[in-house]
């Protein structure tokens, strides 16, 4: 071999002498393929769910608009779908306003408390305190919403609002419902906002601390603006949850079944879209009746509002992730 300039020969054993590397149709190989397909089918279930939600809502909503004009539904100010004959009217505005009114009160509670808690957890809390505060927020997030509703109905209204504001506070009122919905969405706001602030790189804080800024300045002027898109996402997500919340409002804010005009007083009962659905669809409305269709038309409106808000929040979260991760 010495001196021969040819490249060394690879072991040309062919398939015979070398190990068999070829794909086989063994049961294991077929199993791998079958597993892949079943996993995909499982993943498809969530897409099917969405499709079915949209279909079920749309089917009845289309039927509804066969009977009621879109203008009346969206802009009418008299909501009396349960009444008979001439009294029946499908102007959804009072329910929509009630929903937003209660959501507004809820956000007045959840935004300051939630953001302060988030800033505290992200920027101030020593590990020891964090270990106490975080679980408290988790407990709050884990309490079933009906418990909040029950509390609003049996404590907030009779023991807090009536003594403070007088006997004209109705048993169901927008204020009690709003306060408790606020407490309900507070953990959502706090945890999403905290995530956004923790995602801000430490180097940014170091830069500001290095220039002699205090922790307060760093938190409010450096971290907060840097995490702004995530914080807005937290608010949007909180609002979306508040709008879709059912039981608190159903128990303590009004059923939304009979609203001849827009309710403007916080101490009066109104209701919300979700509360209307739950109070009206108790399983016995016959398919095909206008009553049944109304429920789905309101459901569809609610679904669209929450979808838009959620897409917005996904967008906003994606924005800060893109910058910092």
């Amino acid at each position: 071999m010495a001196g021969t300039p040819n490249t060394p020969q690879p072991a040309m054993g062919g398939g015979g002498s070398g190990p068999n590397l070829l794909r086989t149709r063994s049961p294991r190989a077929i199993g791998e393929g079958a597993i892949r397909v079943s996993l995909f089918v499982a993943a498809a279930i969530s897409v099917i769910t969405t499709t079915l939600i949209v279909l079920s809502l749309l089917r009845e909503t289309v039927a509804f608009f066969g009977d009621v004009g879109a203008t009346e539904f969206l802009f009418g100010t008299k909501w009396t779908p349960q009444l008979a004959g001439d009294q029946q009217s499908f102007g959804m505005l009072p329910v929509l306003v009630g929903t937003l009114y209660i959501t507004g009160i809820a956000m007045l509670v959840a935004v300051p408390l939630g953001l302060l808690a988030a800033i505290y957890l992200a920027e101030y809390a020593p590990e020891r305190v964090r270990k106490i505060v975080k679980p408290i927020l988790e407990v709050l997030a884990g309490v079933p919403t009906i418990v909040f509703g029950f509390f609003a109905l049996t404590f907030i209204t009779p023991e807090l609002l009536r003594p403070l504001l007088g006997p004209e506070v109705q048993q169901s009122n927008q204020l009690a419902a709003g306060l408790l919905v606020g407490l309900l969405v507070l953990p959502t706001v706090a945890s999403v906002a905290e995530d956004a602030m923790t995602a801000v790189p430490y180097s940014l804080r170091e830069g500001a601390f290095g220039m002699g800024a205090s922790r307060l300045i760093v938190s409010l002027r450096v971290v907060f603006p840097a995490a702004l898109s995530g914080i807005i996402a937290a608010l949007v997500l909180g609002a979306s949850r508040a709008i879709g919340e059912t039981l608190v409002i159903l128990l303590a804010g009004g059923s939304g079944q009979l609203l001849p005009q827009v309710v403007t007083s916080p101490t009066d009962a109104s209701g919300s879209m979700a509360a209307f659905i739950a109070s009206t669809a108790t399983g016995d409305a016959p398919t095909g009746s206008i009553e049944f269709e109304t429920i789905f038309a309101v459901g569809f409106t609610l679904f669209v509002i929450c979808l838009v808000l959620n897409l917005l929040s996904i967008r906003l979260v994606g924005k800060y992730r893109q910058v910092y991760e």
């Binding site: 939600i53 809502l57 089917r59 979700a274 979808l307």
Partner: peptide, 17 residues
């Protein structure tokens, strides 16, 4: 998106389908 659909809407899906 499904994670943020209000629970009452799932009820409507259950009722209808």
């Amino acid at each position: 998106n499904l994670a943020s659909v209000p629970s009452v809407v799932y009820g409507l899906l259950g009722l209808a389908f």
